[in-house]
Design a protein around this nucleic acid. Sequence first.
RNA 1: GCAGGGGUGACAGAGCUUGGCCAAACGUGCAGGGCUUAGGACCCUGUCCCUUUGUGGGUUCGUGGGUUCAAAUCCCACCCCCUGCACCA
Length: 920
Amino acid sequence: MDFKSVEKKWQDAWAKQKAFEPKTDASKEKFFFTVPYPYVSGSLHVGHGRTYAVGDVVARFKRMQGFNVLWPMAFHITGTPVLAVSSKIAEGDAATIQLHTDYVSVYESDRKKAESIVASFGKDPWNIVNYYSKKLVHDFWRMGFSLDLSRQFTTGDKEYNKFVEWQFYTFKEKGYLKQAAYPLLYCVKDRNAVGEDDIKDGDSNPVDVQRFTGFKFAFGDAFLVSSTLRPDTVYGITNMFVRPDATYVRAEVDGETFIVSESFSKKLALQNHAVNVMQSFSGKDLLGKTCITPLGQTVPILPGAFVDADHATGLVHSVPAHAPFDWVALEVLKKDDAWKKTVEKIRPVSVIDVDGFSSFPAKDLVEKMKIANLKEKGKLDKATAELYKKEFYEGRMAQNTGRFAGVKASEAKDQIADWLKKEGKALDVFEASRPAECRCGGQVVAAVLSDQWFLDYNAPGWKEKSRAALERLRVHPENYKKQFQDVFDWLDKRPCARRRGLGTQLPFNNEWIIESLSDSTIYMAFYTVIKKIRELGFKPQDLSKEFFDYVFLGKGKKTEAAEKVRQEFLYWYPNDQRHTAIAHIANHLSFFVFAHTACFQEEHWPNAITLNELVVAEGTKMSKSKGNVVSLNDIAEKTGADLFRLYAISTADLGATLDFRRNDVETLGRRLSKLYAVWDEFSVLKGKPVDSPIVRWARSKFYRLTQQSTQHLEAMALRDYAQTAFFELLNAMEHFLSRANEAEKAYVASQVVRPWISLLAPVIPHAAEEYWQKSGGKGFVSHAAWPKPPEAWSDLSAEAEEDFLLNTVSDVRTVLKLVKKKPEKITVIFASKSKEKRFMDLIGFPSPEKIGEGVMESYVKKRFYELQRFKRVDEARVLGAAQSFLESQFGAALVFEEESKSQNPRKEKALPGKPAIFVE
RNA sequence: GCAGGGGUGACAGAGCUUGGCCAAACGUGCAGGGCUUAGGACCCUGUCCCUUUGUGGGUUCGUGGGUUCAAAUCCCACCCCCUGCACCA
């Protein structure tokens, strides 16, 4: 079968007949299913393929079960990625241009045309959106996904903006939306917040904002501001270090006078402080003077060559007992005649007790690691990190720390910082965790936005409601429900708007764009109404808050048109099942639940979330840098949709990583061809009713496997479904073919072929349509009823008889292997009636321990539980009927005897279900 | 550190929720046989160890303990691995 033309044929037919565009229909039970829309900044890959393939199996199954299934799609464009691609292309960034020329070339054979399309991306980001969104639809359709394409939109559409505005008005009304100061990374050139993508090497060497505590040391009418990550050591300060060759400034900061490094004065101005630099001077000028610690002690100011003036405030206070750098710095100064006298007076103060160290852990480590001077920065960093970790998690505050004595260092750290801040003796200062540069070339620093918008997940009532929603939400695989609960507990304030990017402006503060995870939490509701909104000719400006209030909540003014839209919503909502990757639990899916409880009435909260793991290729994680990303288009082209889908569904459980291996795909492809070969044969056979053991067996097997497949699908055990419906059923039918005569084949084929095709239609829809048509099915199999073979087909004795036959075959093989000779005659001896009776008595015992001693007894004892399912069969009749089949299997004559009449020396071995076998 | 997930045969990966039918599914790989001019494909058989005109025995499911007539499955401790930790789609 040529998969490409067959797949294309049915995709075209589905499209032409709008096969998956449901209408509201009160007589039919609806099933509203969603998978998150893809982000439109490039091409789709196997990961999307897997998630959507899983989704499609669900959608198709439900549809065939008779549900009115709505499974729509749309496009996510919010945020900076699309903008970034556009601006990089505009700037002539070669790598980006190359990447997108490659993507576009997949669809455009004309190189010139591809290049001009990419060039257009640089002119307007919407060109990217418009181009790729069409291609994404194309790629999805090529995979046979039964999507409703008539409800497409992007998150940048005017109508969508109005919808998100409604959502944020609602958040605000409920008090979930707040403004507060917030530290973040910032580019001084762009004058904008930056994310990982905007920073050079931001993905390989991530940067984050570190919060330091700035201690104010009184110095005349000013304050020297030192910075520390360990405010808990405040009691151990012995001196201040400045860098002699660095430039420091006196500056007015919020009405006080600070002395900090020149570079920090600029950063501080970005941290929500009013900074006015008065004068600058050299670090040398401070040396030899004294300052007063936040706790009121007068300490000397010493030279510290190790101090980095470009890091934080550029001033470091010294805690020699607990900081290896400080310890070594003082040791070095002791050898300097200019400072010897001052330094020798300094007594380290121990303020944290920790097991395994002396009073001066810094000294212990410096000696242990043999650190002689400040040049051994690597060792010092290591010692600092080790000590910090040890003290933070295991240390307790010493007796000399006043009311903090005995408190864990990890807790004292924040308590002391809060206390000093409250007393006006300290302040928060922020710094990037490493020196970083923006892609634009500007320096990346820590800044504080004074008016960042947040969603406060701890706002009164919200979490409780959301926990209630989670409680009744079905999660599959089930064990992830726990993870949701934990995420819900942990969620706190989360920024929800940025200063730039595509998307929706905050309606009451239009300098802000609603951030991309925050504008996609309730859009499933938008799918239900957008079609009607367009149909009725609503303009964006008509879609006011009042309008949506009525549509979604039935609140406020009713108009005829709004009522029509509301009816759509009421029919389709809630979202019956949302399926996506496990990685989204901690963000999107949790926000999805929270946003629903905030915006909708309880009956419209979601019903189920299902999840799948990610995809790797040939055992390795896919990434652009490795160049091993398998694109979805490539799969449609080279592998074929049906084969990929079967592979994705049958190879890994939803909770397991799917490894996309070309070799395995090929192997599966050969098995799939075998199925097609059998269908080719079956779909044209017409037969009259025949009754025979193997016909009964085949029907019973078909009945049972169909039933099991259905159960697996209902339980979202998709892999088990594929295993049963594809592998096991095909194996069973192959066995049947090896045992049946022409009349039996024709009869079973005609009975089984269409149910069989429809059973597999959810995974391999194109081939299923093809064979459905070939076998005389009406309409699309996609719309056919789910197969339900008559219960009368179930025939456990027929199955037991065939099992017995196969077990006997296997036993004969064992014997043949042992005797190692070509058999001429095989004698099969059936157990006597009296033996059989005793056997049945034994397996009827209440428990195996009660069974006594003996050959048969120990046999029964050993497999007592297995034998509970033992079904007596007429062994002589079953094997007798299959005599020619068996003889052809073994290439030997077969003789049957009954134990009581047999002279054979091995007759004693005969047991019910296990005839004795003698080979000669 | 906090939170979540996981450690099973050459590989990959079920089973563990509801302990016995588990030497442990399906599949790869490997070996032997058939088919074939040959290779591929296809079919059959085997694939922890020992033993055998038989369906028997032994040792296994990260490590070490425990509960039980019985544990890959339940409990405890330990070791190791992966993921997430917030403005990022």
